[in-house]
Computed example of a mutant assay.
Amino acid sequence: MASFGLKVIRGTFGVAEHVAPRLTGRAAFELFCRTPHEKSLSQGERRAIDRAADFMTEARHHRLKTRTGCVMVHEFRPEPGRASAGTVLVIHGWRSRTEYMRTLIKAYRHEGYKVVSLDLPGHGQSQGRRLTLVSAVDAARVAGEWFGPFAAIIGHSFGGAVAANAVAGSIRNIPPLAAGRLVLIAAPSSLPAIFADFSRMLNVGSRSQVAMADRVERIAGRPLHEFTGDRQLASTPLPTLVIHAPDDREVSADHARLYARAGNHVRLYWADGLGHRRILADKGVVERAVGFVAGRLEPSLQ
């Protein structure tokens, strides 16, 4: 966000906190849910999409209806000659799309898995300019109805939080998504912490933050403070691998530590020096993510 625009927004929220905090809270929540316009893609992002063009032609593309619109799901068959190992669901993060998950998808196909990759609402080839945890979990539900059950769900960044919430059944009126394992890469684990960071950045006051939290409870059916990864994974004892870089500047390493506190079924692997996005293309990370799903990792990580 441009520095001048950010200053204007911070000033507006600061004044509005004292005049109409509930209205300000709702406005802040909608701003939080707004997804980037396609025209805002950086040159690097456009190059990554162009490089993946041939790769995307290998998929079958399905537009599926959710409760709030339509999402695109890309179905990649296993590599020719590979024995079928099951189906995995891949979920990208905020300001991302299936093309950016290419390295992981290729590795799972090479292992014999069919890969179903979801473009979240407002991202990639899916419709809209708005994304909430509720709409994301609903999109995962629809993918599961068509292609599940899944041998594993692999999520990066926000997609990891979506995966954890989907299998835990944490959203009202959305049943838990069936999966055998979870792989969470650079994933946030605390929605309250994310909201707090967002509020500090935009100068959203305490009374307006209460209105934001009320909005979460109204659409998700649970209070904001319950949306933490340790609570969700503790209630869902699936074998889970958490991969995170200590130097991640977008999602603090504290989020990985919170996931790890859920129980002995969660294993934490530190990917030193790989930040938030480079981690997706690292050979060691990819091998570990695939090996965990395939059951090849050493006992200490099973």
Rank of each mutant, 00 (worst) to 15 (best):
M1R: 02
F76A: 04
L233T: 06
R261K: 15
A260V: 00
E145K: 12
G122W: 02
G160N: 10
A196M: 11
K283Q: 09
A260G: 01
G86M: 07
F292L: 14
H255N: 12
A186K: 04
T57S: 11
P239S: 05
S199E: 05
A163V: 00
R278L: 12
W94Y: 14
S135N: 10
G25Y: 00
H37C: 01
A52F: 10
A168H: 04
A53E: 14
M212S: 08
P80D: 07
V204M: 14
L202S: 08
I49C: 03
E217T: 04
G291W: 06
V290D: 08
L41M: 09
S190G: 13
E111S: 01
A107N: 12
L41F: 02
I185L: 15
Q232C: 10
G11L: 09
A163W: 01
R77S: 14
S157P: 07
A260K: 05
W270Q: 14
V73Q: 09
R34V: 10
H61K: 15
I49W: 01
D54S: 08
T24H: 03
A152T: 02
R129F: 13
D272W: 02
S235W: 03
N203P: 05
G14Y: 02
H61W: 12
G128V: 05
N165P: 07
T228H: 09
H18V: 09
L64G: 04
I154H: 11
H74I: 13
A281I: 06
V183E: 12
P176F: 08
E226K: 14
K39A: 10
Y100E: 14
G275L: 11
V286M: 01
I154C: 03
M101G: 11
G284Y: 00
F227R: 00
R172K: 15
V8I: 10
H225E: 15
A281L: 13
A83F: 04
E38F: 05
G69F: 11
V8S: 00
R267K: 15
E99Q: 10
R63K: 09
V183N: 02
D119S: 02
R181A: 14
T132C: 03
G169M: 06
A260H: 02
A136D: 06
L184C: 11
F76H: 12
V15K: 03
G69N: 13
A179G: 13
R95M: 09
F32N: 02
R277A: 11
L297Y: 03
V116L: 14
T66M: 03
